[in-house]
């Protein structure tokens, strides 16, 4: 009798357990982890690195080469903008625009969206004073001046000959 009773109690317990089973065991739960926020910084080049405040931000999600407007917003006073990436999309094209000035950058989470020290140094160098650009520009100007001199001199010579 005692064993039968304990078997019944056990059986009841088992039924209770089955009835109270959390639904989790019936469905596979998938938890994905990903970086929750992408930080965008926009600033003007030319040495001072002035932040582009209150710029219009457009984020395009790129999936299979197709671009789709994901979200829009505005940069804060420090030229910063934050957005949460769409799950399953790792590539984004970011465009920031303020009073006719526009800059673009593609952020790819799959390739590691972080900015390495070397990349930052390069960006800072690009944003700095373009000394080589200035020298090149002066070179072009000297060349253009030479060409302009030749052309105008020829024109004047022709006019002189016609007289």
């Amino acid at each position: 009798m005692k064993t039968i009773r304990s078997v019944v109690v056990l059986a009841l317990l088992l039924i209770l357990c089955m009835a109270l089973m959390p639904p989790a065991s019936a469905h596979r739960v998938i938890v994905q982890g990903q970086v929750s926020e992408i930080q965008i910084k926009a600033y003007y080049g030319g040495g001072a690195a002035t932040p582009m405040a209150d710029g219009d931000v457009e984020i395009y999600a790129i999936k299979d080469g197709q671009e789709e407007l994901y979200l829009t917003g505005k940069t804060d006073d420090a030229g910063m903008f934050y957005f949460a990436p769409k799950i399953g999309v790792s590539e984004y094209r970011v465009a920031v625009e303020a009073t006719g000035h526009k800059g673009e950058e593609t952020v790819n989470l799959a390739e590691g969206a972080g900015i390495t020290e070397a990349e930052q140094a390069e960006a800072e160098k690009e944003a700095g004073l373009p000394v080589t650009g200035i020298i090149t520009g002066f070179g072009y100007l000297a060349g253009l001046a030479g060409i302009a001199m030749i052309i105008t001199a020829r024109k004047m010579k022709k006019q002189y000959e016609n007289k």
Partner: peptide, 19 residues
């Protein structure tokens, strides 16, 4: 004068939120 105009745009002044 063109050289002056060309380089002038590199001289920035920060005014309020913009440069």
């Amino acid at each position: 004068i063109t050289a002056a105009v060309f380089v002038a745009s590199l001289i920035h002044i920060q005014v309020g939120p913009t440069s």
